[in-house]
Design a protein around this nucleic acid. Structure first.
Length: 646
RNA sequence: GCCGGUGUAGCUCAGUUGGCCAGAGCAGCUGAUUUGUAAUCAGCUGGUCGGGGGUUCGAAUCCCUCCACCGGCUCCA
């Protein structure tokens, strides 16, 4: 007998060689019906595999990530089987599970696989699911494996085999399809009750542009039809919130072919929104001791040669601008930091000056490949809410802490409640690729982790994710419908101070090199506004929304009162509009609703008589009752103050 | 950049076995209506059918090419 420890700490004695599935069944029939895979001593395995020694066992269902990914991986195999049946002779590369579903990279030969073919594939997959084919694991020698795929004529699998060690190779077979696979898999295909082919895309073999492009088919599968329905509804909700759609509907921004790809034009309402965000951050930064600086949009090439950006990015950037007479070479600014370094260098610095914090809403231009562009989230010209803090190594911890405070304040005001901080540290196996002394790195890495903990941040540590010039801390945010975005970033930099030979005179009267901290709580205004639009589905918080109030007189006779009301609101710092059109009230309300203006004030006979307004709130329908003008103004202004935590 | 898809009025979309002057709703303009909580009525304006080239008696529709947009191109059994 051997001992199996379950997650709740209980221990079961089972006979050696009992399968995980049998253990599940001994616990409950319900669990046996739902269990997909087993995690034995931390390793995910097939349920059917026997347990040979004492272990800890977690039984994974759909609810666990490991169960889900196993399920999807098995889904990929079913998709491959279906593809092979529908398109004999196709060649397969790899088919892993991903965050939402799975994909398989396939070589169709000369054939084009497109969305017209999705339905047939889905049906075939469901048919294979109904067949209840078991996933059978088989250990196989390398020679036999090579023989199998040579016979089958699948060069990609043979390529994979080359790098695998004999004795470690396994095949999985379900129905008529056998794949080279380390597993694990779900017990049989009958768990797959709902499938959807999501999209098809080109993907380079091994992710290398020089290689042949394979067809990547993305799909997703579920054990219940209802789950697929829910997933599709979530996608639909995401489509409704798409900032490109809402940006158009709400007149926030526009792209023009004539202006150029990836170069957004901010319309008045979008500009209002953005400038309000900027003002908000500028004020917070002023309080936090930042000093504003402003730098030009182009700079002499030498600046970027010094910074190292030219060597690294020059060839893939917008090409240089030349002066007509002298032929001097200028570049569009891709980063603000080199400029800020030159500002630092504008005069000698003492340790007493530090930390110095230069902030700039700096517009930069980067040549993104045309296929990489996406709405406002990926553009070629954008404005970073950039700042650079020059400080001593000993000040790093405190300064990072202050940045964390600022970021948390911003998230709080903007109602991002769910976020984690990713701490990116050096790859311990490859210390050579980093610049800066070991001592400084250790100190900075420790500082970041300590301060993140002290601030009570949820953190995840990623080794090997640090930049070559320093460790960093990134804020990963979940939006209102659960999608993850990377927002604010804090990066320690030992490289630029070195390259620009920045220094300060210490208390010891010797020259020392400062550390530089890059930070951008929003990242870029473009990307942040995009995320914000999607987060709040276009219903911006009252303090931020371009238009707060729309006044709707019910008839011509009340226009004068409405105009006076508009003046009162404007004089009280409320952004109000007046709809004087000879339209019916219903229509004016409908339009204000669609414009997502938070408050509508309906005024007519009664309001004029009593000097009041009838209040309607966007999205809530109906009449919220009347109040005096003064009360309404106070209400709005106190709401705004509350939101800004002022 | 590469693979696949899409491109018709400011917006959303119809129109493709090639064939009368290319359609609708909304928006805009004009007029009437002066309205009480999500669309008042009528008339009018507006389109190089993404650009260019080709096939054809004839092209929004077929072919080539360029452009833009959309989905991907990090996930190594």
């Amino acid at each position: 007998m051997i001992n199996v420890t379950l997650p709740d700490g209980s221990v079961r004695q089972i006979e050696k060689g009992t399968s995980s599935f049998e253990v599940a069944r001994s616990i409950s029939e319900g669990l046996a019906r739902n269990v997909l895979a087993a995690e034995v001593n931390g390793e995910i395995r097939d349920l059917s595999r026997p347990i040979e020694s004492d272990c800890t066992l977690r039984l994974l269902t759909w609810e666990e990530d490991g169960g889900k990914s196993t399920f999807w991986h098995s889904g990929a195999h079913v998709m491959a089987e279906a593809l092979e049946l529908l398109y004999p002779g196709v060649k397969f590369w790899v088919g892993p599970p991903v965050e939402n579903g799975f994909y398989y990279d396939v070589d169709f030969g000369g054939m084009v696989f497109s969305d017209k073919d999705f339905e047939a594939l889905e049906e075939k997959m469901l048919e294979l699911g109904r067949n209840e084919n078991e996933y059978v694991r088989k250990e196989i020698s390398k020679a036999d494996a090579i023989a199998y795929f040579t016979e089958k004529g699948d060069p990609y699998k043979l390529d994979l085999l080359e790098n695998l060690e004999d004795g470690q190779i396994t095949f999985y077979t379900q129905g008529g399809f056998t794949d080279l696979c380390r597993g694990p898999h779900i017990p049989n295909t009958s768990f797959i009750k709902a499938v959807k082919i999501m999209n098809v895309a080109g993907a380079y073999w091994k992710g290398d542009e020089k290689n042949k492009q394979l067809t990547r088919i993305y799909g997703i599968a579920f054990p219940k039809q209802k789950q697929l329905k829910e997933y599709l509804e979530l996608l639909e909700e995401a489509r409704k919130r798409d900032h490109r759609k809402l940006g158009k509907e709400l007149d926030l921004f526009h792209f023009s072919e004539k202006v150029g790809q990836g170069l957004p034009l901010w319309l008045p309402k979008g500009a209002e929104l953005r400038s309000r965000l900027e003002t908000f951050l500028k004020e917070a930064q002023r309080k936090a001791g930042y000093q504003p600086v402003i730098t030009p949009h182009i700079a002499n090439k030498e600046l970027y040669v010094t910074s190292g950006h030219f060597a690294k990015y020059g060839a893939d950037s917008f090409q240089p601008i030349l002066t007509p007479a002298e032929g001097e070479v200028y570049l569009l600014k891709p980063m603000n930091c080199p400029h800020h370094c030159e500002i630092y260098k504008s005069r000698p610095r003492s340790y007493k000056d530090l930390p110095i914090r230069y902030a700039e809403f700096g517009t930069v231009y980067r040549y993104e490949q045309s296929g990489e562009l996406h709405g406002l989230t990926r553009v070629r010209g954008f404005t970073q809410d950039d700042a650079h803090i020059f400080c001593t190594v000993d000040q790093v911890k405190k300064e990072v802490g202050k940045v964390i405070d600022l970021v948390m304040y911003i998230f709080d005001v903007l109602d991002f409640k769910d976020y984690v901080a990713q701490v990116s540290l050096r790859d311990p196996d490859n210390p050579a690729k980093y610049i800066g002394s070991d001592e400084n790195w250790e100190k900075a890495e420790r500082s970041i982790q300590e301060i993140a903990n002290e601030k009570g941040l949820k953190t995840v540590v990623e080794y090997g994710e640090a930049a070559f010039y320093g460790p960093k801390l990134d804020f990963m945010v979940r939006d209102a419908i659960g999608r993850k975005w990377q927002l604010g970033t804090v990066q320690i930099d030992y490289n630029l101070p070195e390259r620009f030979e920045l220094d300060y005179v210490g208390a010891d009267n010797a020259r020392h090199r400062p550390v530089m901290i890059h930070r951008a709580p929003f990242g870029s205004m473009e990307r942040f506004v995009a995320i914000l639009i999607e987060h709040c589905a276009g219903k911006f918080p009252l303090w931020l929304t371009p238009e707060q109030v729309k006044i709707i007189p019910v008839g011509e006779r009340f226009n004068e009162y409405a105009s006076e009301l508009l003046e009162v609101l404007k004089n009280s710092d409320i952004r109000a509009l007046l709809d004087l059109r000879a339209e019916k009230v219903g229509k004016k309300i409908r339009e204000a609703e669609l414009e997502k203006i938070p408050f509508m004030l309906i005024v007519g006979e009664e309001e004029v008589a009593n000097n009041t307004v009838s209040v309607r709130k966007q999205g809530e329908g109906g009449d919220l009752g009347t109040m005096s003008i003064e009360d309404f103004v106070n209400h709005i202004n106190s709401e705004v103050r509350k939101m800004l935590k002022q």
